[in-house]
Computed example of a mutant assay.
Amino acid sequence: MKRGAETRTERRDDAPRDHLLDRLFRSEAPRLARFIRKSVGNQDEVQDLVQETFVSFVAAARTGKLRTPEAYLRTIARNLLWGRARRPQHRDALHLPVDEDFEIAVAPEQEWMMEASDFLRRYEQALAELPARTREVFRLHRQEDLTYQQIAERLGLNVRAVKYHMRKALLYLDSRVNTDD
């Protein structure tokens, strides 16, 4: 008897969270779909990635309360897109033997994937070239969505130093990644 009471209590405790999640899905799913659609041409894949974003979000949200769930959702979606670009079945989707008589037409999606792969390679290389402190500040702000104040407290810096490292990282990454080498 006691077990049934616990189940009913757990369900009541989950109801506000489920309501908030439903409201968040209704407001953010269309935005995420537009964001993902810029990188993915297939509408079915867009919806799959939106759904995968929310599944990852729910799993991560169980560990603690998130202050800015919208930003966290965008970060998850961005990471899923990066992971998708890294997967071999997307990066090297088609392997054909090439004869001299055979012309290969590169589909726009393949061209985009080659460009995205090249961009990602330049980005990761430039990120690795940053000094350790600058790279850590950049990572904490862009990947973990920490504020400058939170980063300063975590690393024992002042906010001005955090801003310096972010500016340094952004300028360096921009110059290294957005070149036509």
Rank of each mutant, 00 (worst) to 15 (best):
K2R: 10
R3Y: 06
G4L: 14
R12E: 15
P16G: 09
P16D: 04
R17I: 14
L20E: 15
D22F: 10
F25C: 08
R26V: 03
E28M: 12
A29L: 00
A29D: 01
P30Y: 02
P30M: 06
L32S: 06
F35Q: 03
R37V: 02
S39W: 11
S39D: 11
G41M: 07
Q43G: 04
D44C: 01
V50H: 04
E52P: 01
T53E: 03
V55T: 07
V58D: 00
A59M: 11
E70D: 11
E70Y: 01
E70I: 01
Y72K: 13
L73E: 08
N79G: 08
R84C: 06
R86P: 03
P88Q: 08
L94R: 14
L96Q: 07
V98S: 04
F102N: 05
A105V: 14
A107N: 00
W112A: 12
M114I: 11
A116Y: 02
A116R: 08
A116L: 11
S117V: 03
Y123R: 10
Q125F: 08
L127T: 09
L127A: 14
L127E: 12
A128H: 14
L130K: 05
V137H: 09
L140H: 03
H141V: 13
Q150A: 12
I151D: 02
G156I: 02
G156M: 09
L157K: 06
N158S: 10
R160L: 07
R160M: 06
Y164Q: 12
Y164C: 02
M166A: 11
